[in-house]
Design a protein around this nucleic acid. Structure first.
Lengths: 140, 140
DNA sequence: TCTTGCTAACTAATTCTTTCGTTGCTGGTC
DNA sequence: GACCAGCAACGAAAGAATTAGTTAGCAAGA
């Protein structure tokens, strides 16, 4: 049996999604232009990838004159979270705790970063009222 | 240009690595046997994947009689960490903090889990003495 | 010795991924 | 009305990933 299509974003797909998240609605030509420096790609290459992204449900398009304008219909944090869930499932038995421990155990972590992590966790919702009006509810 | 070979573990590869981490040094036939319930695979399929894993540097083999015995030469936590670093780089600009925030922002997180995460971060090294004899130094 | 059974190596088939050339349509320009 | 530029659609080419069949060697038992 051959491999099944990946649910998550492949490298070429992610490269495009990052651009779309940054720029918002864009024509293919604009994406090609924006990629020109780092990754010169033919127009058709970008188009193909964008169409795959649309089939996967990551982008939509609308017609503007003769050109298609593509825009992301999955937010960056949604895609990231999806990716993290995937890693969580594949490597950590769906235990966020185990992932966190792995994160903390990385050799190159600095005390400053650790402090930021601690602050992040302190500011998390779901605990008894942290009493610091932090909405954070911009999600579906 | 075709896609380059992935550095990280693919699904079939991870499936085998998990077995090898669990069982330690194993012959191909034993791996096939162990997989039989969840994923019946032909001997040759498993052999092919193991050989790819060896080429990638995840396993080594030694000869025992006529059979090869394969054993992992990358620890599970190393592979996990590698995978996390990959996600970190691809989605979070190498910011562990941003990953943590994404983790905490997941809808389905329970207060209990949050508490465990907080404890995990409290027990992390690098901070001023947490004063609760927790070794945790079982890593390379 | 000859056969049987297991093993590794090679190869194949299928789908995915990435890149890109070609084709055909459409809208504007001369 | 004919020509040119730009754009989407189709499909191809090449390597990766997954599964598996075939082949050949080798050791143990009949």
């Amino acid at each position: 049996m051959p491999p099944k299509r990946s649910i998550t974003l492949t490298e070429a797909e992610l490269r495009l999604m990052k651009l779309l998240w940054l720029r918002g609605e864009s024509a293919v030509a604009d994406l090609v232009q924006a990629l020109a420096d780092a990754t010169p790609l033919a127009y058709t290459s970008v188009l193909t990838t964008v169409r795959i992204l649309e089939k996967k449900g990551y982008v939509t398009h609308r017609q503007e004159g003769r050109a298609f304008l593509y825009s992301p219909c999955v937010a960056e944090h949604e895609a990231s979270r999806s990716e993290v869930r995937h890693v969580l499932q594949r490597f950590f038995g769906n235990s966020r705790e185990r992932l966190l421990i792995s994160l903390l155990g990385d050799d190159e972590i600095t005390p400053e970063e650790l402090e930021r992590l601690r602050q992040a966790i302190a500011a998390a919702p779901g605990d008894e009222d942290p009493a610091q009006g932090n909405p954070t509810a911009e999600d579906a």
